[in-house]
Structure formats: structure tokens, C-alpha cells
């Protein structure tokens, strides 16, 4: 798995401010929990988040999500990660994550970075950024605009392997 990513960003904000406490019901509502086909899950990503209900139609493979505090708090549903993976979202950068969500994302091979200063990086929808997962550097137009906390060694290894199951086979 590549430790340097490049992608177009979606800044998940409302009235010019990153939305905090986006919970798993806003990301992926409990009425769709019975769905087990990942491709179908993609359609419901953010479908209960005011202002972002059309995310599935806008987002493309390789995009990066930028979010506020406590992203993914709430339930333990893997669907809330799988729906983004199904779209092809490459990474989620948030000011902080709900603990269960962060685990679920890493276990599924999604890159997750905690960056408390991401709201001050001046990012707009459509900007292209480069992310170095090893040192946490986030760049735009080759200039460093923010520094995230790098993932721990175990987390990096799971991510590199492409998820928990692949990682388990490698040890």
C-alpha cells in the first residue's frame, strides 16, 4: 500500500465551519444496516447528513474527506467505513475520531489521520492535496499546509497490508 497519497478533497463543513460530532447515523443511517453488499452501501454515504445528502453523486474514486472533531462517533457499524471504501475514498483527515470508527477504518485499510489544525489549512472543496502517511505531512501545491499525527506502527502495518485480515496472514 502506498504511503503517499494524492487526492481531491471534500471539506465537510456547514456555514464555513467543519462539522463536529458527525455520528454514524449521519454517515450511514441505521435503516440501511441490513445491507451487506458494499457497492449498494456507497449510495447511502452521508445520506443522513444535512447539506451532504448528495455526496454519493459528487464523490469519486481517490477523493479525500476532511472532517471536524469526533468524526464517526456513535455506533460500531462497519458500514460507516465501508460506504466510503465502496466509493473509493482514499483517506479521511479529521480533527479527531470516535475511537471505534478509527479502529474500523484502519482494519479495513482506510487511511485515517488525526490533524487538529486541519481547519486552519485553508482547504476548499476540489483542492488537490498530497498526504505523507509516514510523517503526517499534508501538502498543497508542494507547500506543507498542515501536520497530522502519524499512525502508530501496528496501525501502519495493518494499513500497509490492506486491512486486518491481510495483515494477520502476514504475521
Amino acid at each position: 500500500m502506498n504511503m503517499k497519497l494524492k487526492g481531491r478533497v471534500w471539506v465537510i463543513e456547514r456555514e464555513g465551519k467543519l462539522i463536529d460530532d458527525i455520528d454514524t447515523d449521519m454517515i450511514y443511517h441505521n435503516q440501511y444496516l441490513h445491507i451487506t453488499d458494499k457497492k449498494e452501501m456507497a449510495k447511502y454515504a452521508f445520506s443522513n447528513l444535512e447539506g451532504w445528502k448528495d455526496f454519493y453523486e459528487k464523490a469519486e474514486e481517490g477523493d479525500v474527506i476532511i472532517a471536524g472533531e469526533n468524526f464517526g462517533c456513535g455506533s460500531s457499524r462497519q458500514h460507516a467505513v465501508d460506504c466510503f471504501l465502496a466509493i473509493g475514498i482514499k483517506a479521511i483527515i479529521a480533527k479527531s475520531f470516535g475511537a471505534i470508527y478509527k479502529r474500523n477504518a484502519i482494519n479495513s485499510g482506510m487511511a485515517v489521520l488525526e490533524c487538529s489544525s486541519i481547519d486552519r489549512a485553508g482547504l476548499k472543496n476540489g483542492d488537490i492535496i498530497e498526504i505523507n502517511l509516514l510523517n503526517g505531512e499534508i501538502k498543497k501545491d508542494s507547500k506543507t499546509i498542515a501536520k497530522a499525527k502519524p499512525m502508530s506502527i501496528v496501525q501502519t502495518n495493518i494499513y500497509k497490508a490492506g486491512g486486518l485480515f491481510s495483515y494477520a496472514k502476514s504475521i
Binding site: 455506533s75 460500531s76 471505534i100 474500523n104 482494519n107 501496528v154
Partner: peptide
């Protein structure tokens, strides 16, 4: 601890978690 289905499947199989 609540966990997602990937974690739990791994625990069913190995009895361990990170």
C-alpha cells in the same frame, strides 16, 4: 468494547485483538 465486524471476526478466529 464495541467493535465493528472486521474486528469481531478477527477476535472470533484468533481470540485476540489489538
Amino acid at each position: 468494547q464495541g467493535m465493528g465486524d472486521v474486528d469481531i471476526a478477527f477476535v472470533f478466529k484468533t481470540g485476540k485483538t489489538w
